[in-house]
Amino acid sequence: MANSKPLLGYWKIRGLGQPVRFLLAYLDVDFDEKFYELTPELTSDNWLADKEKLGLDFPNLPYFFDGSTKITETRAILKHLSRTRKPELLGKTEIASKIDMVDNFLYDLYYIEFAGMIYGYTEELATTYKETAAVKLGRLSSLMKDNEWITGKDITYVDFFVYECLYHFIKFDSSCLDKFPNLKGLMTRFENLPEIKKYINSPKFLEGPIYLATAKYQL
């Protein structure tokens, strides 16, 4: 039997689950969450116990159950929610390619450069990341220009991913956006969206931790 409410499964951290939580809040979707936590021995026994029993094509966290639909991967979930609840969040045809570029560009910076540095932290990795981020955030800022949102005047699903990535970046390096006021402005506008502000001030909001306890650098 399908769940009566959508279900989001993820670690009990912000991580890659937070953009999905924000979008669910923005869309006013009543959903349940299943949190997975590492044991004191830093194993993932509870997730491994579920992993092959959930009927997922590509078992991973986060996962999302929506009626008969079972889906994994953050960006796929964001697109699914947009497609099924508010298609305009996918963007108009003329900017769809830009949205796709931002999506993939930022994922590389976040997942490969940033998260890799956080989990395997060394001063050398941190220096390399900061050099990379300075260039790539500059490119993101240049693409945004004086838009309200990253690809134009209308918010799209990728802005939810953009916000959370930028949040992580400034938690690590508080000055990283000092040269990019348009990116700072996007964060402020996002936090002031009525639905987002309501969620942030609700008991359901997960402020932290940002990463698992296995990360060598804790934010």
Rank of each mutant, 00 (worst) to 15 (best):
D66P: 01
D66S: 00
G67Q: 00
G67A: 09
G67C: 02
S68T: 05
T69D: 05
T69F: 05
T69V: 03
K70C: 03
I71S: 08
I71A: 00
I71K: 00
T72K: 00
E73V: 01
R75L: 09
R75T: 06
A76L: 05
I77K: 00
L78H: 00
K79M: 08
H80Q: 01
H80I: 02
L81C: 00
L81W: 06
L81K: 04
S82E: 00
R83N: 03
R83A: 01
R83H: 06
R83I: 00
T84A: 00
R85V: 03
P87F: 03
P87T: 02
E88H: 11
L89I: 07
L89E: 05
L90S: 07
L90I: 12
K92F: 15
K92W: 12
K92Q: 14
T93H: 15
E94G: 11
E94H: 15
I95E: 11
I95R: 14
I95T: 14
A96I: 15
S97V: 12
K98M: 13
I99V: 08
I99R: 07
D100L: 04
M101P: 05
V102C: 10
V102I: 10
V102N: 10
V102D: 10
D103A: 04
D103E: 13
N104D: 10
N104T: 10
F105N: 03
L106F: 12
L106C: 01
L106M: 12
Y107A: 00
Y107V: 01
L109W: 11
L109Y: 10
L109I: 02
Y110P: 03
Y111H: 07
Y111F: 07
I112N: 08
I112T: 13
E113K: 09
E113P: 01
F114L: 07
G116L: 11
M117A: 10
I118W: 15
I118P: 13
Y119L: 11
Y119D: 14
G120S: 11
G120L: 09
Y121S: 14
Y121I: 12
Y121D: 11
T122Q: 09
T122H: 14
E123Q: 13
E123A: 13
E124T: 08
L125D: 08
L125N: 09
A126T: 10
A126I: 08
T127W: 11
T127F: 12
T128N: 08
Y129W: 15
Y129L: 12
K130V: 14
K130W: 15
K130R: 15
E131K: 09
T132C: 11
A134F: 15
V135C: 05
K136T: 06
L137W: 13
L137M: 01
L137D: 14
